[in-house]
Write a protein that binds this DNA or RNA. Structure first.
Length: 456
RNA sequence: UCCAGAGUAGCUCAAUGGUAGAGCAAUCGGCUGUUAACCGAUCGGUUGUUGGUUCGAGUCCAACCUCUGGAGCCA
């Protein structure tokens, strides 16, 4: 295949280039008197390259009509300074090859489309400015996650996607089976000899590795069979879960906050063009908000303080504010959007509303849990110090009606050389929403899976 | 799953219970170093589905489907 120049590189040129070959998809064509302008995009960056197709190219009149929106082209030519305004470089074509036609039924138009409409054609939407940008940023964000942990000497652990432990009761699980549903379902005859599921969290597995390699993280797909129909829940999503031995809740919060800031900074640095686009067309004020967050420390509020703030706010809430009750979305909203006007970390939650594995505090009422809440999205990080005391953990399992036998391997970590350890989970897509200003999780996942939807 | 709102041309939206329209897109033509180009023309409809009320339903009623916003569960 011909050595092609990516449009991103062509646009970064510092001087004219002889004989450049680019390939991409036509966004628009505008005909001038003796030539045509083509806006060609190859996805390497948000901007397209302006291509000039001179009218004296062989058989121009025969093929120019086929250079339509959506068509794929190979163009050879000279990269020269643009005579027009709006772009620095343009490609004066000397040869054009139509690779793939695109007829009038091509659904993407030059004008702006609603995200809802674009969702109906998830296979074509990455060719749009918005979704192309979202998925370029998504890729860079994933790389940044690995870089952050790599720089801090964390080991990346591939925890299993199929699991036999219905761990921590974190939502409904998808059953994995090879049994014929019409012939009954004896789990002992199933593929793994017992009921198995898609993972809802890699945490427990990560804990075992933290209690050996010290600092580890997982980053992979996670599945919840909840019938959630909201803009921030998906049945299949990606989660990042670091786990640190010899680390208490304070260290956990330090890491979570540093992580959020790192990802913001990295995205601003590496995706400047896309971020400017989001700021202009998706969420005005996005850049200002993110920069402001970078500059200041996260506010840390104990759960009881947070409740006091809500009680004293004079604000009317639909749901009651009361010590011991979970914070509702509207409460989190008030705290992040109205009171603190930025991300906050709420810690030391009531024991009764948190899972069994969180470390009991000395007050007997609370556990060493923490949530990082951000404006617009709510919970973006949830974590805790883990209960490392064997007897306490056993009594917690019993209190939650969980089988000690099923968790024997988990209890072994406390039986043999137990250490204080902590970790958290971050929803990758929620972070991406926070960074791009895109308000629906379905628009930051290439092919979203939600209740009733597994198309494409 | 619950509450609310919305489904009309390819898209975004109009239309007192009385002849279904505009802008954009597409197609054709014109003009032009254009860039969400511009100007003119053409094309474009089982008004989400089914049933009901009515002389007459896009409009009113019922059920269902889909989407959106909010809630719960959470990341």
């Amino acid at each position: 295949m011909i050595n092609r120049t990516r449009i991103r590189d062509a646009l970064k040129a510092t001087e004219p280039m002889e004989s450049v070959t680019v390939m991409g998809w036509v966004r628009t064509r505008r005909d001038a008197k003796d030539f045509s302008f083509v806006d060609l995009n190859d996805g390497s960056c948000l901007s397209g390259l302006q291509v000039i197709l001179p009218g004296d190219l062989p058989d121009y009149d025969r093929w120019i009509g086929e250079i339509t929106t959506g068509a794929s082209l190979q163009v050879q030519g000279h990269l020269v300074a643009s005579q027009g305004k709006g772009q620095r470089w343009e490609l004066q074509a000397s040869a054009v090859q139509l690779m793939g036609r695109s007829d009038a039924s091509y659904p993407l138009q030059k004008k702006r489309h609603s995200p809802e409409f674009m969702r109906e054609m998830a296979h074509l939407r990455p060719r749009s400015n918005l979704f192309g940008s979202v998925f370029r940023v998504r890729s860079r964000l994933a790389q940044a996650v690995h870089r952050f942990f790599s720089e801090r000497d964390f080991f990346y652990i591939h925890t299993p996607i199929i699991t036999a432990s219905d761990c921590e009761g974190a939502g409904e699980l998808f059953r994995v089976t090879t049994l014929d549903p019409s012939r009954g379902g004896d789990p002992t005859k199933d593929f793994f000899g017992k009921p198995s599921y898609l993972t809802v969290s890699g945490q427990l597995a990560a804990e075992t590795f933290a209690c050996a390699l010290s600092n580890v993280y997982t980053f992979g797909p996670t599945f919840r069979a909840e019938n959630s129909n909201t803009s921030r829940h998906a049945s299949e999503f990606w989660m990042i879960e670091p786990e640190m031995a010899f680390c208490d809740l304070g260290g956990d919060m330090d890491l979570a906050e540093a992580f959020v800031k790192y990802l913001i900074q990295d995205t601003l640095d590496q995706s400047a063009e896309e971020m400017a686009f989001f700021d202009a067309f998706v969420d005005k004020g996005l850049l200002e908000r993110l920069r402001w967050i970078l500059e200041r420390p996260f506010e840390r509020v104990a759960y009881t303080q947070a409740v006091d703030i809500l009680l004293q706010s004079g604000q009317r809430f639909e749901y009651p504010v009361q010590h011991g009750l979970n914070l509702q979305s509207e409460h989190e909203r008030f705290l992040t959007e109205s009171h603190f006007k930025g991300p906050i970390t709420v810690y030391d939650y009531p024991k009764a509303i948190k899972p069994f594995y969180m470390r009991a505090n000395d007050d007997g009422q609370t556990v060493a849990a923490m949530d990082v809440l951000v404006p617009g999205i709510g919970e973006i990080v949830g974590g805790s110090q883990r209960e490392e005391r064997l007897e306490v953990l056993e009594s917690q399992l019993r209190a939650h009606d969980l089988s000690l036998e099923d968790y024997s391997w988990y209890l072994d970590l406390r039986r043999y050389g137990s250490v204080p350890h902590s970790g958290f989970g971050m929803g990758f897509e929620r972070m991406l929403m926070f960074l791009t200003g895109v308000t629906n999780i379905r628009d930051v996942i290439p092919f979203a899976r939600t209740p009733g939807h597994a198309s494409f």
